[in-house]
Simulated scan of single mutants.
Amino acid sequence: MITVILVDEHHVVRAGIKRLIEEQSDILVIAETNQNDQLPAFYQQYQPDVFIIDMNTAHASTLNMVNELTMKYPSARVIIFSNLPESFFANEAIQAGAKAYIRKTSTIEELLLAIRNVAAGKTYLSVDIAEKLALKNIADEQDPITILTPREFEIFRLLAEGTEVESIAKELKISLKTMANYQTQLKQKLHITTPTQLVRLALKHRVISLNE
């Protein structure tokens, strides 16, 4: 029996996924939560085979929490379940320690396949995301954003969205001095000097869009 913990801020979403998963004879949802900061405690308590964790633009700390979880518990296996379509987010999720990245537009069959693959120690990407990553590799584009750590990327995205420095520091629970150090690192790694250049880079690589 594959044991699963669901992490999503919406009760209705969790209930729907749980119902579909538990129609399977080999998969059981043993716990659920709407708080991603409970991941280490839940892993220690339940020892699940798989976490299914929601990630969207409202959860700036998700990748960091996944990274902390997998660093502390290397045997923890995470599936990121996201409505973010760009392959870059999948790449960041895998770098943070996730074993799979599934779009919320995926079929239930694809989600079940991901669960079984991850429980067996394998990795899995949604078909459309895998295709985008393959095409990007073929094109051999030089994407400077790929060198950012998960935390640097979250700060990059929040700055590009226009979030105030103080708000970012508070949300990520870091000091203003640490935030300033991250800003300096971003400028050096991305070879930018102004906020306008940062936004243009984010738009170019579709980390944000004009309609946001």
Rank of each mutant, 00 (worst) to 15 (best):
T146E: 07
N117D: 12
S106A: 12
I155T: 01
A96K: 02
R116S: 09
A160G: 05
E110F: 06
K136W: 14
E109V: 11
I174L: 08
L158R: 02
G162H: 02
A139C: 10
L172A: 05
L113A: 14
V118D: 01
D128P: 05
A100Q: 03
I145F: 01
E166T: 14
E109P: 13
I102F: 10
E109R: 11
D140R: 07
A114F: 04
A139W: 14
L176Y: 07
E110A: 09
A139L: 13
T178F: 13
I145M: 03
L113Y: 15
G121S: 09
T107D: 15
L112H: 10
A96T: 09
I108Y: 15
A120V: 07
E141Y: 12
V127D: 14
T178N: 14
E161N: 05
F153I: 01
D140K: 07
L133D: 07
P150G: 05
A119H: 01
A100V: 04
L113F: 15
L133H: 08
T149E: 08
T146S: 06
E110L: 08
D143Y: 08
A160T: 02
K122V: 05
S167L: 10
A98T: 07
G121W: 01
V165L: 12
Y101H: 08
Y124L: 11
A100G: 09
E92A: 08
T163M: 05
I129E: 02
K132C: 09
P144L: 04
R103M: 10
T163G: 02
V127G: 06
L148T: 00
E109F: 08
P144W: 03
L135N: 13
R157C: 00
L125K: 01
S175R: 08
K122Q: 14
Q95Y: 09
E152D: 10
E92L: 08
L135D: 15
S106D: 15
D143S: 12
G162N: 02
Q142W: 09
S167H: 11
L159Y: 03
I168E: 00
D140Q: 12
K132R: 10
V118K: 00
I115N: 00
E161Y: 00
E141C: 09
L172P: 03
Q95S: 06
Q142T: 11
K170A: 11
R103N: 13
